[in-house]
């Protein structure tokens, strides 16, 4: 059984159904890309995992049923979230953002500073005054400080300058090579994803339409479901 397993997941925003049949699995130490065009339900899937919206179907994390848990309990099970749009705690300093979320485990301030040296330089700075790239680094660092077993990155490189995107991808590679952390990554950068991912899950209109290893991901598939 995978670390995270979603079977026939449905999700709702009030009366309106956003997910119809999402199936995905992430195993320990594995990197899985969740892809699809805009509005296909990728971020809604993340919200479903964290129980931020009502869901149906089977959502298991390490064998535990997520649908009976609250958002903070999902996090405590070992799911770390880097939300879409960064969403750091803007009024706290960089260091305070990290201290506030720290939990026992491998990741501490020193490890974070090694992974993102820029954050060490900005340690005392109010988070809202950081550049977009630095805020993204902080969002990843904050999630790591919860010492997750699974890191979920929702559009972590969206809207960033190419050089900053490279830094983020480099950090994700380091996470993969040095820590063996399981990662579910939502992104559209196929070239970078091909270098680091083990498997891919593609959504369309709230349904899983393609699942397979990254080397099986042909141009025809990406053309058909992602449009690139």
């Amino acid at each position: 059984m995978g670390l995270l397993s979603l079977s026939s997941v449905k999700a709702y925003y009030g009366e309106s159904q956003a997910l119809f049949d999402v199936n995905l699995e992430v195993n320990e130490g594995e990197i899985v890309a969740l892809m699809g065009r805009n509005g296909t339900g990728k971020s809604t899937t993340v919200k479903s995992i964290f129980q931020m919206i009502p869901t149906k179907g089977e959502l298991l994390f390490s064998g535990k049923n997520l649908s009976k848990l609250k958002s903070f309990q999902v996090s405590r099970l070992g799911a770390g979230l880097v939300p879409e749009g960064r969403r750091i705690f803007g009024q706290l300093s960089v260091k305070e953002n990290l201290i506030a979320t720290s939990r026992e485990g491998r990741w501490n301030l020193e490890e974070i500073n090694d992974l993102f040296p820029k954050l060490k330089e900005r340690s005392g700075q109010v988070a809202s005054s950081l550049s977009g790239g630095e805020q993204q680094m902080l969002a990843i660092a904050r999630a790591l400080m919860t010492n997750p077993r699974l890191l979920i990155l929702d559009e972590a490189t969206e809207g960033l300058a190419p050089i900053i995107r490279q830094e983020i991808w480099s950090a994700i590679k380091t996470l993969r090579n040095d820590t063996g952390l399981a990662i579910l990554i939502i992104d559209k950068s196929i070239r970078e994803l091909r270098q680091i991912c083990d498997r891919v899950v593609i959504l369309e209109k709230g349904r899983t339409v393609w699942r397979g290893n990254i080397d099986q991901l042909s141009n025809e598939v990406t053309q058909e479901f992602i449009g690139v």
Partner: peptide, 25 residues
Amino acid sequence: KSPFGLALNASRQSRQRIEAVGFDF
């Protein structure tokens, strides 16, 4: 300045975000 105080401050900024990092709001 303690993790509790910082989390309390963060909870004022966003309930959803503080719960997503494991705090019972």
